[in-house]
Amino acid sequence: MSPENVGPEQIFRDFDQIPFFYIIFLVLAAILLSSLVRRLIPSLARVLPPRFSYYLLPMMPIFRLMITGLALLMIVPTIVKPSMQNFIAFFGAIGLALGFAFKDFASSLIAGIIAVYEQPYRVGDRVTINGVYGEVQSINLRALKLVTPDDDAVTIPHNCIWNGMVMNSNDGCREQQCSALFYLNPDHDAEMVCQILQDVALASPYTLFSRPIRVAVREMPWATQYRIRAYPVDGRDAFAYISDLTCRGKAALREAGLKFPAAGGIAGQAYDATDYAV
């Protein structure tokens, strides 16, 4: 029998042969399991030390995808007559329908599966996608949800990974390097400033001491640039940490009698794009 001769009555089982209660049971069981996973994994992540959450939370969409897939695999044979031709026709028709009607949706779903495998972002990562920076709050089948530093929730479909660029600041790790910039009038003792800024990072309660603290110096025509590079204990505190370093650094430099360059000098210069990097 060729596929073009296959009619619906030959693909699907008779109405009275379809075990509706079984299907409802499977759907409910899948929903229940999925919500159980959604609750259990975060609570397990809360109980365990925070570093484990970076491994556990990304597992959540994988488990949910597996549950959904398994439920579908069990449901389809109860609706479709079990033959290879029927399955090809059924999935072909679904694929065609999805291809036309839900092209972007299907694209996002497939990208979601690829994202689970490739992991360009994980729950808890700080990423920049399409120019939006934020922490990945959740990864669902179609889209991921970011929360920006301004506390805005942004939903981005997974198909952004096909053509767009995903910048991941911590790539699954808890640590995230942060840098705070300072500009000083060039006439000063650079070694002393390095020591002061080192102490600024050491004094900050956010600082993680298992990673190095570095102070980089760069001479510019109008000022000397100092950059503290250090890691906060929890990468989610990146903005708070940079603010803390900046406040402490300014106070420390002022107390040491160091002069900041005139505002006009800075305003006239083009900043390096990386100056804004977290």
């Binding site: 020591q195 002061i196 102490d199 050491l202 004094a203 309660p205 402490r248 106070a251 107390e255």
Partner: peptide
């Protein structure tokens, strides 16, 4: 004193 001057 865990302060930038205190450490010095």
């Amino acid at each position: 004193l865990r302060h930038f001057n205190g450490l010095e």
